[in-house]
Design a protein around this nucleic acid. Structure first.
Lengths: 341, 341
DNA sequence: CTGAAAGCGCTAACAC
DNA sequence: GTGTTAGCGCTTTCAG
């Protein structure tokens, strides 16, 4: 088997306590014993058992990324992957242990966030995928373990939120469409009870009103953020409203935009010649479609990185819980045509 | 804090040993004490500390998914996400703890696979992303901890490999192109030292020779599986060989196909009217491009599931180490045109 | 069937 | 500076 701290102690002729001090760079140890121990450790290919370490030590350097609904999604999800990369990047740079936990609504009902942390000896977590009908949405409020939620505003003394200014971003996106001369715009909406849906809706309406435009109820297509729903919804929409002069589809996510374009092409229309389409998120796929989709890039990897960063600072007492608004960027590509106003 | 096994024992008026037996469904305990304990446990919202559990118990139900190079990839990677989903699916269904570990070549040099398992108290792992120049490629051979590699043939008593018959699959794909009348086919190749590259190459050559065709050296475009390299390579290729009658591009991955199509369109050519293109992998993006890409679907999620399954069986002694060849499926979509032979 | 007690490998007082 | 020792929360003999 692999060597334990005992083996190293014996081989170096010191006590386990001293080995522990040497391995963890404690100051109260002479330079030469440390060196000798380190050498012996290397010789024996000693690796501290992180499980034992985590069990015995008070403060842990273990953080987690909790993904709710990761397995349920039929949809393609770039989003989680990019988030993951950001979190892992931070963890590696700062020598933290990071673990990923997949949960869902049922698991949330079974065990609280604090219990989950306790089970795994976790100091705190970045949480993604919470619906505002999920148990954690309310229970996190009283959590004593720090956490950082992504894109969902949960209150609580130990909970931070990392998000974008979705209202402003969507307003910008809508304004861009208007600036290109579009007056009759259909909105392809996300899940009704999602915070981001409400925010983006607000942004869209703001921009429209500011320009003296209305968003008729019939021009709203509802989905649960699934591409297929967008396809079906848009296909039906152009059957019913095809002649009413709608010139653009404003989509609440990139996947919805992909579905929209699919439906449009399926109906023999061209994008952007016949209809303009814009998305939201900035996932990779927007660069692979034809045309490439004009969208708002949230820089999701960065979001993961900053979320882990904030979490770490909360754990260490460097920064208090707070809302962090990250910058977004309008990415103009090929899915919008300028039309006569 | 959260309740410990001691608290439950005290509250139920029994010893910790008995609580442990009750919680783990051991047979040697009376039905009514078990019930009482379970009730008390629920009341106290008791959750066993998995870290302590893992430390003390001999056999562990902890498996891992090890991803090598996950952070390095500039490329878009669906592949890992789908693999992850498959592994997590199996773990959840079988009540296993699964953790994900991101490594790279450097980390492989620093600690062996067995050490990594020891550090985290892991019974075995599914390993993805190994290059055949990586340290683990050889060292796994002598591992006493079981593991399952994906798409890379590592020998060793405790190592299984889950893959597809890439030779046959690529042969099939190539044959399809030939059946559609293509005679002059360019090959967009993956990383030279990757096992999958050699296998697919073999499949391509097999199909060509069987049909009396040759693959001229000048018709091979080398890449490291990066989309951008395919774009650049193909752009250059049609500048140099544009007039020589090549009618199709056979790509070793879907991302290479995406890059190829991009380059073709960039040069003002149409797909599939002017050139046919096929990919390989079956990642989601092939359905979002225009045209949708004809490809070989590896059913990656399934691959992850089966890999975790095999790993589990190896750990439990149900199945010995073995090579598992999963079925593939030719997905005919819109990127190939029938031409006159 | 149940209790007592010895660890799992490590950290963190507390002594000297 | 370094050794000693008491846990961390749980499992698992070994008695009875």
């Amino acid at each position: 088997m692999t060597a334990t701290i005992q083996d190293v102690a014996k081989a170096a002729g010191v006590s386990v306590g001293t080995v522990s001090r040497a391995m963890n760079n404690y100051p109260d140890i002479s330079a030469k014993t440390r060196e000798r121990i380190l050498e012996v450790a290397k010789e024996l290919q000693y690796r501290p058992n992180l499980v034992a370490k985590s069990l015995s030590s008070k403060h842990s350097r273990n953080i987690a990324l909790i993904l709710s609904g990761f397995l349920e999604d039929v949809m393609f999800n770039d989003f989680e992957t990019m988030l993951m990369k950001g979190c892992y990047q931070f963890a590696i740079e700062h020598d933290l242990e990071i673990s990923m936990h997949v949960i869902n609504t049922r698991i949330q009902e079974e065990k609280s966030y604090e219990q989950l942390c306790y089970e795994h000896n976790i100091a705190g977590a970045v949480i993604f995928g919470l619906k505002n009908t999920d148990p954690y949405f309310k229970s996190l409020e009283e959590s004593r373990k720090p956490c950082v939620t992504i894109d969902v505003e949960v209150s609580g003394e130990n909970v931070s939120n990392v998000t974008n200014d979705h209202v402003a971003a969507f307003e910008e996106l809508t304004q861009y469409l208007i600036d290109q001369g579009h007056r009759n715009i259909a909105l392809v909406c996300g899940r009704k009870n999602a915070a981001v849906t409400a925010q983006r809706m607000e942004g869209a309406v703001n921009a429209m009103h500011r320009n003296g435009l209305e968003l008729p109820k019939e021009y709203i297509i509802y989905t649960n953020f699934l591409k297929e729903e967008a396809s079906a919804g848009v296909a039906e929409f152009i059957r019913e409203h095809g002649k009413e002069g709608v010139t653009a589809f404003l989509c609440m996510s990139d996947m919805l935009a992909v579905g929209t374009i699919e439906a449009l092409k399926g109906a023999g229309r061209r994008v952007p010649e016949d209809y303009s389409v814009v998305g939201y998120d900035g996932i990779y796929v927007t660069e692979y479609t034809d045309p490439k989709i004009t969208t708002v890039d949230q820089n999701i990897k960065d979001k993961g990185y900053e979320a882990a960063h904030l979490l770490y600072d909360m754990i260490e007492g460097i920064r208090p819980a707070q809302d962090l608004i990250l910058p977004h960027k309008l990415e103009i590509r090929g899915s919008v045509k300028k039309v006569d106003a």
